[in-house]
């Protein structure tokens, strides 16, 4: 029989991030009523939009069973390039396509390393991390750049009355969600993450799909960099440093498995990114010691990863073959009850 405690634990594990989210809201709301004011909530969304966009791209890569360590550097390249074009007198209409094209190109080169040259994603994107940062430093001449008003429009404009970063964030989110849930490529990404070898045997063009995944990651990183630079108004040589870790953290916090094939952009990754920002914002509002932030953040991420690992271990235990299935029926019921929701 299934014990009550087991089920409760499974339920908690499955919704850990949502619980953390609610807990964070309650805790900060009680401590500082200002936290719950609409202006502040909007502010949280604004602050998290860049990270959420980047993490969306990362989710694609993780779902396919890869990893992309170069997103922070791609953000830097994109911001640097945007700054350069605007300072050189280019218009915003020129900046956006250039930046996006560069993001895709960087992603395509990452894809080339992993699919054609068959270098492990971790090492290939690690090398790319250095190279794109070097490229960005070359563009900026290793100096900080202050940007003119025109680029800041990306941060302050309000199409349809929605602040532009949130608008972009929602657009990216919606398209990512649709691609993953409703297109052949989206479903094939899940298949490749589940079992690459089987995907090849089934006739999926894995190489092409993986290339798309890295290009999307590059695209999202470039867009995230653009949004971020528009909000900050300046590009420093450390712009985007270690943002790859933040993106991975957001995706994992949102339930995307590092083992590939499981997770989703909405609500998953978005929730993860917004949760990170919520906690940071809340800590500011309750006047917490700023040095405590990373401790709390890493504790939260630890919970998320631990949940993922526990779930993974549990699944592999349950997928064990039973010799006497009629005896294992009880176990099977348990599987069904605490079952996984890998699909969109």
């Amino acid at each position: 029989m299934i014990r009550q405690g087991d089920r409760l634990l499974a339920f908690l594990l499955r919704n850990a991030t949502a619980f953390l989210f609610v807990a964070a809201f309650l805790a900060f709301g009680v401590q500082a009523p200002a936290f719950l004011e609409p202006a502040n909530l909007l502010n949280i969304l604004l602050q998290s939009s860049s990270a959420a966009i980047t993490a969306t791209g990362m989710t694609f890569v993780l779902l396919a069973g890869g990893i992309d360590l170069s997103v922070g550097s791609i953000m830097f390249v994109s911001a640097a390039l945007a700054g350069k074009v605007v300072l050189g007198g280019g218009s915003l209409a020129l900046v956006i396509p250039i930046v996006l094209a560069v993001g895709i190109a960087c992603g395509a080169i990452n894809a080339l390393f992993t699919t054609r040259l068959r270098i492990q994603p971790f090492i290939a994107t690690l090398a790319a991390l250095y190279m794109w940062r070097g490229l960005g430093l070359w563009i900026t001449r290793t100096r900080a750049m202050n940007l003119p008003e025109s680029l800041l429009q990306v941060g302050t404009a309000r199409p349809l009355g929605i602040p532009a970063p949130i608008f972009i964030f929602c657009a990216v989110l919606a398209s990512a969600h649709l691609v993953l849930a409703r297109t052949p490529v989206g479903r094939q990404i899940y298949a490749i993450g589940n079992d690459r070898e089987a995907a090849d045997k089934a006739g999926i063009a894995s190489g092409r799909v993986i290339a798309i995944v890295y290009m999307l990651s590059g695209l999202c990183a470039a867009l995230g960099g653009l949004v971020s630079v528009a909000q900050l108004g300046a590009v420093s040589p450390t712009f985007g440093n270690q943002r790859e870790f933040a993106a991975i953290a957001a995706a994992v916090l949102g339930g995307t498995s590092l083992f590939g094939g499981r997770g989703r952009v909405f609500p998953g990754t978005v929730l993860g990114a917004v949760l990170i920002q919520t906690v940071e914002n809340g800590l500011v509002i309750v006047n917490a010691n700023p040095y405590v932030y990373p401790l709390i953040m890493s504790a939260i991420i630890f919970v998320a990863v631990f949940t993922d690992s526990a779930r993974h271990a549990r699944l592999s235990r349950l997928s064990r073959r039973y010799i006497r299935p009629w005896q294992a029926a009880a176990h099977r019921v348990e599987t069904a009850n605490s079952g996984e929701e890998g699909k969109q």
Binding site: I119, I123, M131, R133, L135, W138
Partner: peptide, 19 residues
């Protein structure tokens, strides 16, 4: 050589090592 070249060369070396 400037810092960016050094950074890029390092990236290239890691790739080279992997190959």
């Amino acid at each position: 050589l400037s810092y960016f070249v050094v950074t890029m060369v390092k990236g290239g070396i890691i790739l080279f090592a992997a190959l």
